[in-house]
C-alpha cells in the first residue's frame, strides 16, 4: 500500500525547495535518476548529485560529490535514489548536516519505503515523503503530466501559469 499525502503537503514541499541533493544519481542517461535530475534542473531546481563512484566528475554539468558531508550548503531536500535498506544510513548522514544545510525534507523515491528512516527524519522535525518521484509530483501538480493522460487528481478553475513556469504549482 502506497503511503498517502495530500496535494497541499507535496506542493508545499516543492514550493519551498530550491536545492536537492540526489543520493544515488546516475551518469547513465537512460536511468530513472538521470530522468528525474534532468527534469528537475530544467524546472529551475539546483540538483547536487551524490555518487561515490563518480565523485569529482560531472552529471548534467553538475559536480558530483562522494558523500553528503562533502556538499557545500544550503540543501533543502535529500532525495534518496537507493534501495530501501540504504535509507536509514543516508538519513543519519543527512541529519548530521541538518543545521549546515538548512535541511527541510527527506524524500524517498518510487519503490523506496523505510519506516525506520522516516521516523528518524520526522523526529528531527523534517518533512518526509516516501514512494514518490519529485519529477512526477511536480509534473502532476503543475499540470504538465496531464499531457501524458495521467490522472492528476486535481481540478483547476483558474488559469494556471504556463507549465514551463510551474503551472498550477505557482499559484497560492
Amino acid at each position: 500500500m502506497m503511503p498517502s499525502y495530500t496535494n497541499d503537503y507535496i506542493a508545499g514541499i516543492l514550493r519551498n525547495t530550491r536545492t536537492i541533493a540526489m543520493v544515488g544519481a546516475s551518469g547513465n542517461e537512460m536511468r530513472p535518476s538521470y530522468f528525474a535530475m534532468k527534469y528537475l534542473l530544467d524546472h529551475g531546481f539546483k540538483v547536487v548529485p551524490i555518487n561515490p563512484g563518480l565523485a569529482g566528475k560531472e552529471i548534467l554539468g553538475q559536480k558530483v560529490y562522494g558523500a553528503l558531508k562533502d556538499v557545500p550548503g544550503p540543501v533543502d531536500m535529500v532525495d534518496i535514489f537507493r534501495s530501501p535498506d540504504a535509507a536509514p544510513g543516508i538519513v543519519k548522514d543527512a541529519l548530521a548536516e541538518k543545521e549546515r544545510f538548512g535541511l527541510k525534507t527527506i524524500w524517498m523515491q518510487l519503490g523506496v519505503v523505510n519506516e525506520v528512516a522516516a521516523q528518524m527524519a520526522r523526529a528531527a522535525g523534517l518533512n518526509v515523503v516516501m514512494d514518490r518521484c519529485p519529477k512526477i509530483e511536480y509534473g502532476r501538480l503543475s499540470g504538465e503530466i496531464g499531457w501524458m493522460g495521467v490522472n492528476r487528481r486535481v481540478i483547476d478553475n483558474r488559469k494556471p501559469a504556463t507549465f514551463s513556469k510551474g503551472g498550477s504549482l505557482n499559484r497560492g
Binding site: 530522468f35 530544467d42 499531457w147 501524458m148 493522460g149 495521467v150 490522472n151
Partner: peptide
Amino acid sequence: FNLQVFGNIYTRIMNPTTAVLEERIAA
C-alpha cells in the same frame, strides 16, 4: 524524445486536447 521530460512532440503520440480526454477517462 528520450522521455526524460514531459511535453508535446507530435499529435500521433500526444496532443493537449486529446490529453484532457485521456485524463478524464482515467479519473
